[in-house]
Amino acid sequence: MSADPDEELVRRVGAGDPAAVQTLVARKLPRILSLAVRMLGDAAEAEDVAQETFVRIWRHASSWRRGNARFDSWIHRVTLNLCYDRLRRRRELVTDDLPDMVDPAPLPDAREEPRRIEQALQAIAPRQREAIILVYYQEMSNIEAAATLEISVDALESLLSRGRRALHMILARDGVHD
């Protein structure tokens, strides 16, 4: 297993080093927030999740030991679990099947395109969404993403394929994609 680039920083955070705390926040907050925003599709909720994730980091930093996962994978897992708690509360879990279109209105202009993509991402199954976000937006390798999701690489590829197919169909139906 290769070295964890965050290990030393986490050790310093665990020892209560304020400079290490600042570095960790600067390094990880953008990643945690973008993951939560894309998982939840809600900026305010995503900020709450980011704060809760950091509270868990502060609580566990002094006792954190690298097991099978890197620190970055661990915080992604924590963030995803917190997102799932919120999704469960919203009762918005969808099935693996292609969901109903979120908004069938015609596309007003190009500025709406990112919004359509966000809606399409929210409309696919959460596990497929997780896989796409980790590999595509969080730029994790297939092995890191599979470890974070606690599944095999084959299962990850299956989630990615089904997720991308579902996105393609939704966006094509919305007129965003051919």
């Binding site: 907050l29 953008p30 927030l33 925003v37 894309r38 704060q51 509270v55 990112p114 993509i117």
Partner: peptide, 26 residues
């Protein structure tokens, strides 16, 4: 298409709040 869906960077307020909470923990 996926590239076009970007998310905003964390704001100063969120950043500061997280650091304040960290201070309390330390």
């Amino acid at each position: 298409l996926l590239d076009r869906y970007s998310v905003p960077h964390p704001g100063r307020a969120l950043h500061d709040t997280i650091l304040r909470v960290a201070d309390r923990h330390i």
